[in-house]
Simulated scan of single mutants.
Amino acid sequence: MRLVLAALLLSLLALGQRLVSPEEVARSQVIQRALPAVVRVQGSPTAPGENQVVGTGFFVSPFRVVTNYHVVQGLTELTVRLTDGRTFPAERFAVDPGIDLALLTVRGLQAPRVLAFSKTPSTSLPLGMGVVVVGFPFGQGPLASYGILSGIGPLEVPSPDPSVGAEVGEYLFTDAPLTVGNSGSPLLNLQGEVIGVVADVIGGPSGVGGIGVAIPADLVAQSVQDLERFGIPQRGWLGASLVSLDELPPVLLRAVGLTTAQGAMVDRVDPGSPAARAGLRGAQRDAQGRLLALGDVILAVNGKAVKDKAEVVRLIARYRPGDRVRLTLWREGRRLEVTLTMVARPASR
Rank of each mutant, 00 (worst) to 15 (best):
L248F: 06
L248W: 10
S118H: 06
M265P: 00
L258C: 03
S183A: 11
A14P: 02
P346H: 08
L219E: 12
L172Y: 14
P137R: 02
V198C: 05
G196K: 06
R235P: 04
G184M: 09
Q73M: 12
L245W: 06
Y69W: 12
G108D: 05
P45K: 11
D96Q: 02
L101K: 04
V197A: 07
M129V: 11
R334W: 10
G192F: 01
V60L: 08
L187V: 09
N182Q: 04
D296P: 07
G322A: 08
M129C: 05
L5W: 15
G55Q: 07
G169F: 08
I211D: 01
D296W: 02
A276F: 01
T179M: 13
G303H: 05
T260A: 02
K307N: 11
G257M: 14
A264V: 07
P177G: 09
Q32I: 10
D84K: 04
V313H: 02
A47M: 10
T67A: 01
Q234P: 00
E77S: 13
V301L: 01
G231V: 04
V80F: 09
A199R: 11
D267I: 00
V297G: 04
S21P: 07
A34W: 07
E311V: 09
D96I: 01
A276W: 03
V164A: 05
S159R: 12
A264W: 09
V164W: 01
F59M: 10
A275M: 05
V306S: 06
D218H: 15
A102Q: 05
D246E: 11
V71N: 05
V54K: 09
P250Q: 10
R324K: 14
R326H: 09
L178A: 07
R113T: 12
V224I: 15
G209W: 00
L187Q: 03
W237M: 11
T120I: 12
V266I: 15
I148W: 02
